[in-house]
Design a protein around this nucleic acid. Structure first.
Lengths: 117, 117
DNA sequence: ACAGATATATCGAACAACTATACATTGTCG
DNA sequence: CGACAATGTATAGTTGTTCGATATATCTGT
């Protein structure tokens, strides 16, 4: 992330980011982290210390479910959406769009009122 | 706000909301609150206990500046953007757009992968 | 006179995110 | 072969934001 704002900005929508990644298919922590990083053009660095507690919270709330994979040398914990999780992605995506519209409505007149640069 | 998610969602972008309102012209707390509420179609309720500390933070960081108006019966504290505040609105707006794009990139394949409903 | 809207403010609780740290394995480069 | 980077998950402690509750005071309509 470029600076402090970008960090703060993410607060509250990290859930949606992670759920979105999992909606696209089962995945494990480290890869989820990379996926988010790439989707943001390297600007959003979802730290491990943020991601793992978040995954645990999502699991505790039954939006996702996990399963260890010990078959390979590196132990990986795979996560996948539950039915409730899928409902949640749809609901949160709808709210996200609504929220974006709201910000746009405030931002449009604001930028128009600001001097060109 | 409808539910818990919407509340969490706002975290981190309340700054931008308030700064946007002020970019559109000087304003005072109570009206800022109503403006945000209306822009969101009544879904975002920016609580007084959230707004006033936020305004104080913004003032402490010199993005805005305040002035009491005692000329009318009701005392109002007017806020306006500083030059630094205007720069901040532009910068944060740019970051916001970038961030929205990022979420969209994650959300698009996610929704495509989910069953129709 | 009273209720409800206007208007600002602060405190404490709850909680999310970050930093730092820990630990173990695998691949790479010299 | 030894060091270092990358892979992979996890937690403890700190900080900061948001919220609900509460306080205070004025104005308007009934």
């Amino acid at each position: 992330m470029a600076d402090r704002f970008e960090r703060e900005l993410m607060r509250g929508s990290l859930d949606l980011m992670v759920l979105s990644v999992l909606a696209d298919g089962a995945n494990y922590g480290y890869l989820i982290q990379k996926r988010v990083r790439e989707a943001s053009g390297q600007t959003v660095k979802l730290e491990a210390g943020t991601l793992y507690p978040l995954l645990h919270r999502l699991e505790a709330s039954r939006a996702i479910r996990s399963k260890w994979d010990d078959s390979t040398g590196r132990k990986r914990k795979w996560y996948e959406l539950t039915a409730a999780g899928r409902r949640r992605v749809r609901a949160q995506a709808a709210q996200w769009n609504q929220y974006v519209d709201c910000i746009q409505q405030l931002l449009k007149p604001a930028l128009a009122a600001l001097p060109a640069k």
